[in-house]
Design a protein around this nucleic acid. Structure first.
Lengths: 195, 195
DNA sequence: AAGTTAATTGACCCGTCAATCAAGAAAAAA
DNA sequence: TTTTTTCTTGATTGACGGGTCAATTAACTT
């Protein structure tokens, strides 16, 4: 049975299984055996490819972050003008991929991981910086010196709306999420206040 | 040593110890022994007063929620006019009490708990409803039919800003948090857009 | 064919932890 | 004083999970 060049395949399978399993369990209380089983191998093999459970978690996190980064870059590439760029970032943040329940659950638990694992904290920090930087670049031509503050607000809002989706287990509303954030953006750009 | 009427004292000690320990560990990976030790008793006694670890977690959550509710009520009681009421809710959400690192950490982990424990989900749901309801009541006279939408936005923003405080371990900025949320409120009320 | 390397697993060890229990110590009651 | 009730713990148990390892299988190399 031993085929060659299994390593990347196994690792990918384990990463996906880790995300799924965390999403299913709704916590990091996941055994290596569960992950390995879902990935179709023995727990010993999982340990063969990853140093330990922590390494699996980190790899899963890195994977999600990579996917998200690619999505943002793709959306930015086709955006026309500053406002479209901001909207692109928001839309990418709530893309179907990031919106799968397992992924949402995984995200929440990554925040938990960041509290104890310096590596995880670093990854999340990089993500946050990129997010805010992308927002700022689009916002600068629109709101000038307020760009930094508005970017911080939007970033927090994105996370907050995301967090809310974790709560309402079973009734995720992607369109509403995007709308909420873009609504604030519109208001901040000076064309809200219709009350 | 056995004094009488120990139950409420022991329970309170355990609740506080649970919150502290969760905050310290940054996760729910906390043993009953650790909690009991911090509360100054044996793990067996902890089991005597609570059905199990889960019950301790729930009691801790309930306690934080109760404190928070009291704080909001207190702030609302002295608020003059609708806008002040909204600001009161925001300020209460970022009060020093809710802003202690252990409490912030505990909150994050309560979100995790809500993913698996129905009771926890229910508690969080009640909190969310009350928060939004309070915001809506204050917002109605200010933005009329948009009250519901704006309330949702502010609620998400509060959570998002809160979440961010979890990340920047060691550099919590209460004033900035309040400012961010109140800034959006001001803009939504039609006197932002100074760009 | 013989030897090397990659892939893979079952069994095992060791530690940990939630939960239980029987028994002790002190106050209150009889 | 004796009894009862409240409080308290050390010791124990049973289960479980991470990680290691020796051994096996199959491919690739020479």
């Amino acid at each position: 049975m031993p085929k060659l060049g299994m390593e990347p395949i196994r690792k990918a399978a384990l990463v996906n299984a880790t995300i799924d399993e965390i999403g299913r369990a709704g916590s990091l209380d996941v055994t290596v055996s569960q992950i390995a089983k879902r990935a179709g191998m023995s727990s010993a093999l999982a340990h063969h490819y990853f140093r330990g459970k922590e390494a699996m978690f980190l790899a899963a996190m890195r994977h999600i972050l990579t996917l998200y980064g690619a999505e943002v870059r793709g959306a930015l590439a086709v955006a026309q003008g500053p406002e479209a760029r901001v909207q692109a970032v928001v839309r990418a943040s709530f893309s179907p991929a990031n919106f799968r329940r397992e992924v949402i659950g995984a995200w929440l638990n990554f925040y938990v991981m960041a509290q104890t694992m310096p590596e995880a904290a670093h990854l999340l920090d990089v993500y946050q910086r990129r997010l805010r930087s992308n927002l700022r670049h689009g916002l600068r031509p629109l709101v000038g010196p307020r760009a930094a503050a508005v970017a911080d607000t939007l970033a927090a809002l994105i996370d907050g709306v995301y967090l809310r989706q974790v709560l309402v287990r079973g009734k995720t509303d992607r369109a509403g999420a995007v709308e909420t954030v873009l609504g604030v953006l519109a208001t901040e750009l000076g064309r809200g206040a219709r009350a």
